[in-house]
Design a protein around this nucleic acid. Structure first.
Lengths: 357, 357
DNA sequence: ATTTAGAAAGAGACCGGTCTCATTGATATT
DNA sequence: AATATCAATGAGACCGGTCTCTTTCTAAAT
């Protein structure tokens, strides 16, 4: 009784060699595409290979060559449009260069990130692209360097690590957005992020564990401080991780003595949640409150009004990160570099002068 | 001169064995967690391993065991929320079961899909989850079975292949949506899909190469036929692959003698594009035209009006597909099964009775 | 005291490729 | 004709694990 489904021992070079009546070494040369072989023998081996339906075992190949042809990617959450677009950029660039991509989710959780990195190194990925969930904990990333696996940070950078990073120009982007609101006449502007924290407030922006958020907050604060506004960090709020908590954050903001007249959402998910919160409170944009969101996400174009956003070229960022990694993998000796890509403000309909009291 | 970045030869069991003054076999037993070892020796080996920062080479491990611990996933497009959510479901289920996921994009293109499948098999994935781009071309999928790699189809099924599949109840979903529109009083209802085709029209729904779309179209047509409407397939349109072509599809529909009063979008991307098209034409929903979209995507809740959708539990679908595959990987002998998950219609504001002429 | 069972450790083959080195044979050189 | 040169093939080690088989040693059984 024969079982077709049962995994039969797969066809190896040795099998092909036997069928083609040549040595294993010769068959390997043909099948592996290296060394010198006569045309006649080559044809012979190829014929045997197709007849037997030979498929190279990449695992074995990787083991001897030491290269797996795989790039490991650790992102916060593939479900998030930001990351899925980035992954697309990475995958495309990788495929063109002949690499494959293996993806792991960290859920923005340090321990998950650590084990993902460990695992990918165990799989002997040739290189790693990581979105560090915390920029202040980097032992595991130092390990990556130690074992000699090239590493590129994505979306966030850790200068102390001395590795490549590809990020947006987060500070400038925040500056542009904040200026835009300031110019529209707003004086009480809130910045809302999903970053996990003890409370909703921040004590010191320098302690923000996510460098992208930190840069943005610093840009935000610098503009407001420059404009002579007092205590601008009062309006920086964290912890908008889901709809419920976002509702709470917004509620707190609006119930205070001097509520903000404009909001900046730290990413498109926060933006979406804020939009929903505002909607459910019956507040209209931009009459009652203005808002700007990071990332030109799908939803921002079809709302009424459409949302003014900071357009991050995420696909290109992913592509750049992959290209940087790949040029390292191809042996280029490069100094660690911080690549920042330019973002732009797309003005739509969600910003207007604040309502006069 | 020492180069810290250069990849140094990695630490192997043999190195650990030497350091712990035991045989390679014994060290391997400890590090691999198999066989019997005395506590004393175990401690000795563990100490040496941590001292040397030993990291197992999963590649080598996979080669001997024949299992890689990797599940290969081939999707149409990770950038599409449908797939990124599914991938999340797959990844989560996989991680819980101790598997990893390697993702490849087919771009809904048969050749890309073929090479992705080849490649993943070359990497010796333990199992495969594939969204077949065409349900009428399945040689490469038969190869998968032949080499003995368990396969689960996702979102689309190919009964002739005799493998597991996890899909939505596409026919029923389309039936429910169409009935809903019919009950609202619509008689001219269009179904718009992004499926690539020669023209925008279909000759025979049985020839649709994507089984999910085929099922939906068949459900759609059956309801309309049952309702006594003539030539309902006239209103089935394909090729809405990007904004421009979607605009064209809509233009053609609306310029005809008896334009549709309601639209069904085959997926959330088509829905989004249709929404934009309608917006740019100055048509208001649902006064001028009603619409229903597949997939409860982010954007559908924040439009004015919010969009009535067919909610597909995509995360669960991904999870189910992974779980099915994993139970096979764990040696369960199962008959091929078509799993369909129930969808539901979420009524929001995009459906109203048609305007009276 | 001698046999015996079983636990613990060692030796070495093996997985399926790559790659170095040795061997063969044909052509070019003197 | 004898030697040098080089292309084409073969033989076998190697990568880093797993795993089988063998050996050693201790403790229970007779």
């Amino acid at each position: 009784m024969e079982n077709f489904a049962a995994s039969k021992r797969s066809v190896t070079v040795a099998d092909v060699a036997r069928a083609a009546k040549v040595s294993k070494a010769t068959a390997a040369r043909v099948l592996g595409g290296y060394g010198v072989v006569s045309d006649k023998i080559r044809a012979q081996v190829m014929a045997a290979a197709t007849a037997l339906e030979y498929r190279p075992n990449e695992l074995a190949r990787s083991m001897t060559t030491g290269k797996s042809g795989i790039i490991g990617v650790v992102v916060g959450d593939i479900e998030n449009a930001f990351f899925s677009l980035a992954v697309r950029g990475i995958s495309d660039a990788a495929r063109i260069a002949g690499f494959n991509v293996i993806i792991a989710n960290s859920g923005e959780e340090l321990n998950a990130e650590k084990s993902a990195v460990d695992l990918l190194i165990g799989k002997r990925v040739d290189g790693l692209i990581v979105t560090p969930s915390r920029c202040d904990r980097m032992d595991h990333l130092q390990d990556v360097r130690r074992v000699g696996v090239p590493l590129v940070l994505f979306d966030r950078s850790i200068p102390e690590l001395g590795v490549d990073s590809v990020t947006g120009d987060d500070r400038d982007a925040a500056v542009a957005a904040t200026r835009h609101l300031l110019e529209a006449g707003h004086r009480r502007i809130a910045y809302v992020s999903a970053l996990e924290a003890d409370g909703e407030h921040i004590a010191d922006s320098r302690h923000l564990s996510n460098s992208a958020v930190r840069e943005r907050v610093e840009g935000f604060l610098s503009v407001l401080t420059e404009a002579g506004l007092k205590n601008p960090q009062h309006y920086v709020r964290l912890g908008a991780t889901d709809q419920e908590r976002t509702n709470a954050v917004l509620k707190h903001l609006l119930e205070e003595g001097s509520p903000p007249t404009a909001l900046v959402a730290s990413d498109s998910l926060v933006g979406l949640r804020l939009f929903r919160s505002l909607q459910s409170l019956g507040l209209s944009i931009p009459q009652d409150i203005s808002m700007i969101s990071f990332l030109d996400a799908d939803w921002t174009t079809v709302t009424t009004p459409p949302i003014t956003v900071i357009d991050q070229p995420v696909y290109e960022m992913g592509k750049k990160a992959a290209e940087r990694l790949i040029s390292r993998l191809n042996g280029k000796e490069l100094a660690a570099e911080r690549t920042t890509v330019k973002t732009s403000l797309i003005q739509r309909g969600s910003v207007a002068p604040p309502r006069r009291k």
